[in-house]
Amino acid sequence: MTPDILCIGSVLWDIIGRSNTHMTQGSDRPGRITRVPGGVALNIAMAAKAYGMKPALLSTVGRDDEGDTLVAALDRLGLITETLYRSEDLPTDVYMAVEGANGLIAAIADAHSLEAVGNKILRPLDGPLAGWQGPIAVDGNLTTNLLAEIAQDRRFMQSDLRVAPASPGKAERLLPFLTHKSATLYVNLEEASLLLHDVQTDAAQAALRLRDRGVYRALVTDGPRLAACAYPGGVEAHRPPEVMVTRVTGAGDTFMAAHIAAERGGADVGAALLRAVEAAATYVSGDTYS
């Protein structure tokens, strides 16, 4: 199978505990605990596949039982896994989160194997994917050094590069892309504040400020409030529809994948942004992709 998008970053198991009640630090509530394929790059890939694209994964997965089970699950989903780096001596990474009715309570991302293998995950770009011309989604679970390397890499210079932090705690890893002339950044308002070293209160203004720093395009979301896209022609903004929130982990990845798929399908700036906010709202409501 020939891909039409590359997803570079974390591919792991998500262990998510969800409760339908309000939770705070120290809460002990009944709920459900699930284990599903996850990671930012994988979430983007799965959403892109649901929107009709053919994603290839550039990441690392261990040759342990957890890794074999994960790759088998991804093959069944129709994702391209031949491009994964399978480590003989590193375990498969894992992410753990607790969510309440009031949103994400806490999370821990164990992406140490991804960090340890470094640029080995990029080897397919010198092999079967040499000369790649399509979109590339990169997530902030990569090390600071590898992200800086990608920002300067000639293979990415003229590509349709889409970049997202894995979390606010890793937002500043994306600083090298603020002067990248073909990169599109996908961040939430908190992450935009961290990149700009200044508290932002408006998604549209934050997107414009990121553009002023030199990035080609910036998309900034603010939960149920305004989402904005600043691009060379100006700025577009849309407010997501009101929905009952039943999950939050993966919403930003769904937003990004829907936006890429919409643009690859020919949507203009405003239509692509609207499609993305609607897709994210559908996702957090617990419904399936549409």
Results as ranks from 00 to 15, higher is better:
158 Q>S: 11
159 S>H: 09
159 S>R: 15
160 D>Q: 14
161 L>R: 01
166 A>H: 02
168 P>Q: 12
170 K>Q: 12
170 K>C: 06
171 A>M: 06
173 R>V: 00
174 L>A: 07
174 L>C: 07
175 L>K: 14
175 L>T: 12
176 P>G: 09
176 P>Y: 06
178 L>W: 04
178 L>Q: 10
181 K>G: 10
182 S>C: 10
182 S>Q: 14
185 L>K: 00
186 Y>H: 12
187 V>F: 00
187 V>K: 00
188 N>K: 03
188 N>H: 04
189 L>V: 05
189 L>M: 10
193 S>N: 08
193 S>E: 07
195 L>T: 03
196 L>H: 08
197 H>E: 13
198 D>K: 14
199 V>M: 09
200 Q>G: 03
200 Q>N: 07
202 D>A: 12
202 D>M: 06
204 A>G: 13
206 A>R: 01
209 R>G: 00
209 R>T: 09
210 L>M: 11
210 L>C: 07
210 L>W: 01
212 D>R: 14
214 G>N: 11
215 V>N: 03
215 V>P: 01
217 R>G: 04
220 V>K: 02
221 T>F: 02
222 D>L: 02
223 G>P: 09
225 R>H: 15
226 L>N: 12
228 A>N: 07
228 A>I: 05
230 A>T: 08
230 A>Y: 01
232 P>I: 11
233 G>C: 10
235 V>K: 10
237 A>P: 03
238 H>T: 08
240 P>S: 12
242 E>P: 00
242 E>Y: 03
242 E>I: 09
244 M>F: 09
249 T>L: 12
250 G>F: 01
252 G>Q: 08
253 D>A: 06
254 T>W: 03
254 T>M: 11
256 M>E: 05
256 M>I: 04
258 A>N: 06
258 A>T: 06
261 A>W: 00
263 E>H: 12
266 G>T: 10
267 A>L: 12
270 G>K: 13
271 A>P: 00
271 A>D: 14
272 A>G: 11
274 L>Q: 15
276 A>D: 11
277 V>A: 11
277 V>T: 15
277 V>N: 03
279 A>Q: 06
279 A>R: 01
279 A>P: 04
280 A>M: 07
281 A>L: 08
281 A>V: 05
284 V>M: 09
284 V>K: 02
284 V>Y: 00
287 D>S: 13
289 Y>A: 15
289 Y>G: 05
